[in-house]
Design a protein around this nucleic acid. Structure first.
Lengths: 109, 109
DNA sequence: GCCAAATTTAACCTTTTGGTTGAAAGTTTG
DNA sequence: CAAACTTTCAACCAAAAGGTTAAATTTGGC
């Protein structure tokens, strides 16, 4: 499935994963998405294009501001694909929270 | 988390995903992995290196044959990361089987 | 010891990726 | 209208990805 290519490729970049996590909290304007990163606005704009092409986010222009919105549906196929290696035990919530904490520390933000 | 980079990048290539699915059935020698693909052995060898670097497979040399083995543990972190977008409903098994059928048709095999 | 088999390495090529800067385009507001 | 703001586009660059072919390496069998 071609969509898996773009979804996994989009997820392989830490900047883009961080963006997705930021959007988990709320929709954001492009400038605000860019703010925490030490990178040009144009670079962030490209990352957002990649995420949009993969279907992981959508962008809607209202006035001069383009709002970015998480579209978790695209993750479903990828998630389903992973389930085919079904020997993962159910997610341990404690481990998961510790994991998220680590992710937010170590990453691009 | 750096490991996520390599795992997702490894999964973004359809040849590598097909290889993982082949290894789901049984361990395989490099030559046998390469057989269904219209691609040089050297190219497959590189793909296997990528999968090994990502921790998705392991390779053990016995005699002159190197055996490839699925290592689903590495998928766990990626799977956990996806759970952070927890709004996925539980996997529908029928949809999943239809999905697998499509994947095996359309892909590199 | 020599030949064949299994796999990797090396050198190379083309395309993609991720970044830069600067200009352009569309929108709002003074 | 003009100036300011938000975002993208264009041109460019370096590095990485994915492939090739040919040579090298390691091992097994006669």
């Amino acid at each position: 499935m071609a969509q898996l290519d773009t979804v996994f490729a989009a997820l392989s970049d830490p900047t883009r994963r961080t963006i997705l996590q930021m959007l988990l909290e709320d929709d954001m304007a492009v400038t605000d998405v860019a703010h925490p990163f030490e990178m040009s606005l144009a670079a962030i704009s490209k990352h957002l294009s990649v995420l949009t092409a993969a279907g992981l986010i959508s962008q809607e222009k209202r006035g001069r501001v383009k709002w970015c919105k998480l579209e978790p549906d695209a993750l479903r196929d990828a998630s389903i694909w992973m389930q085919s290696f079904g020997q993962f035990e159910a997610v341990n919530l404690d481990a998961f929270e510790a994991y998220l904490a680590r992710e937010f520390d170590g990453d691009g933000a």
